[in-house]
Design a protein around this nucleic acid. Structure first.
Lengths: 203, 203, 203, 203
DNA sequence: TTCTAATCGAGACGGTACGTCCCGTCTTGCC
DNA sequence: GGCAAGACGGGACGTACCGTCTCGATTAGAA
């Protein structure tokens, strides 16, 4: 809630951004992005589709990037962070992988995920947003799973945490974002076992 | 050598794309990309820097995307595919990871890697190019390593190959392209051992 | 006021072409044309001189030709048509010739008159515009003069009108547009007498 | 024969501009001009149609303008100058007008006449060529007719020559080049009588 | 006949301008 | 004040010609 935290601000003396309008814009933007993809989505088109003046967009977000970043962030966030754990490492693991796959399968991610990643190279704000609000919660979940397993004694206490997290997240994320290749249950099953073994071997 | 394979066409009595000019353009384009990144690199700027008319660019490549794609492809290709193997799984593995890290560290990759990935979402030609000429050779190298290890008896013959390859490549690629985070030798060392364990556990 | 009659559209809740900007463009275009001539005037140069984006020109006129045509048409129109008559044929005649000379001496006419004429060969719209809005009113004035003289009995009623009008207009127009040669009062004086005689001889 | 006087130069050691090639170019240029008009005729198109390299054009003429100017000049010249006179003023006059009409009706004149005129505004060389080689001979013919008539006593000796010539040439030229309107025999007949009267009235 | 030098075709080259599209800002009048 | 509409300055896109330059192949006059 960085750039638009005030869009639900109840009232402040006269001018309040109207929620109805904001929602119409968001819906239009999602539709436009789904149709055209990140780089080819134009603010003019979004405004037109929403039946809204362009200034109305820029009253809410400072740039196209920011708007689309917030969109994806909200979508990914509302898809709930794949929060922690329940019982044993292998089940925690499997659950996390399934959740990740589902979230990464969301058309919004498929459509503009890499676009945002690319843009983030030149836009520190955007990069922060993606790292802190999209990546971080998922890494936190992975971290919690590993920590619990260590506590339980299922994993060695000197586990390299960063690498462990990478092992949990990277294969799925890589395959879906880079190779755009779908992932079936069999793959997840095998991956679960392999990662478990990998982690345990991290003496 | 798809779009410009004829630029070194030795001669045919008349207009041949001149190597000198092509080289100047490539150099200018790389410089421009290094400075500005993929999406923000303009053909006008490249032409200006190369001291060349814009038409001269379009005589060689049909569009900005194509030009930049070919550039990175050539750069990545000339960095030679990290071809396979020598002795034992663990050494093969370590060697592959080191090579990958070095190639992914190339500023060109850092700068425009994700940009191309993003553009590929909307451009089948570009997508093919990246998958077939950049990804495929690396996956082939990984495949060879695994196959050799199976032959040697170091890995189970029923190993899920696709997943095995992902395990080898994804952690590094993910960390460098997505997190833009550097990778030290310690990381590689631990990763090598973990992946080896993971693969052996793939019953 | 064909293509831009709405540029003074009083208001409709939003985007209206702004008069200030339009005026700046027109001034810049006239200056540019005066400096460079019709065919060599570039939209980029006009935009630059006016401190305006190129799209702002194309929002007003669909092409360079149209813009310049409208410019000259307005200039020539505002120089008011040399409307008719007062008393006797010879004075009417002299007055018309003087007015014509002055209008044809306008630097704008000198500069781009022939350019427009040339372009009109390939552009029916432009041709119509020139014939209907520039030529026609002048021919109408000449026609009125002749008609009045016929009514008064100064000229024979079976006068070939078209030819009569040509006799009035052609020598001046030809000399100024084709030969680019100035015309002094003596020339006009002699011409007046000659044309009068010619007309009266048209039995 | 200014710019290409050497194209028939019999020989000079090896390289001579080949007449066959020159003719092919001329034919192609005329065709191209007839199809497209002056301003829209491109050297590339002429070269392509002639099956000739562009340099081959520029070996013969220094610019597009010059080439087209020479073309029209030759065409108009070969249509023979409407040289003078035979007997009485009125017959001389009629003959001149008929000749003029026929020459001005030539499609080449219709097509690029005004274009050249326009270009001449910015190109002194071209202007000279048109004035000296196209206009001058016709004015000379008109001059001869008038002079003969004066000698014969048909016209007053103090006739304003320049204006007299204009009266002979302007109406036809104006009507055909500016109004692009055809001229029938009746028009010429009336015009002949009118001009004759006008000239005689030039006290 | 052989030599030799300019012409030839083809078309690449540096440039300039075209008309289009989109960004993020600004302007106008209504609610 | 927000809002719809859309004009605005700016800048890049890819195209079309201009007149010049670069090739190797051809052509004919001179030796």
């Amino acid at each position: 809630m960085t750039t638009t935290e005030n869009r639900t601000r109840p009232a402040n003396g006269g001018g309040v951004l109207r929620k109805k309008v904001t929602d119409a814009i968001i819906e239009a933007a999602l539709a436009e992005v789904a149709k055209t993809g990140y780089a080819r989505t134009s603010m003019d088109a979004v405004a037109r589709r929403a039946g809204v003046g362009k200034a109305t967009l820029y009253r809410r977000w400072p740039s196209k990037q920011t708007m689309l970043a917030e969109l994806i962030r909200d979508k990914v966030t509302e898809a709930l962070p794949p929060m922690p754990a329940t019982s044993a490492l292998s089940t925690d693991l499997r659950e996390l992988l399934v959740t990740l796959r589902d979230q990464l399968s969301h058309p919004l991610v498929t459509r503009i995920g890499t676009g945002l990643l690319a843009e983030a190279t030149h836009d520190a704000t955007l990069d922060d947003l993606l790292q802190n609000e999209v990546a971080a919660p998922r890494r936190a979940a992975a971290h919690a799973i590993l920590q619990n397993a260590i506590t339980r004694g299922e994993l060695p206490p000197n586990l390299n945490m960063e690498m462990g997290i990478d092992l949990l997240i990277a294969p799925l994320a890589f395959r879906m974002l880079m190779l755009k290749s779908p992932i079936d249950d069999q793959y997840i099953e095998t991956l679960t076992r392999s990662i478990e073994a990998a982690l345990k071997a991290s003496s």
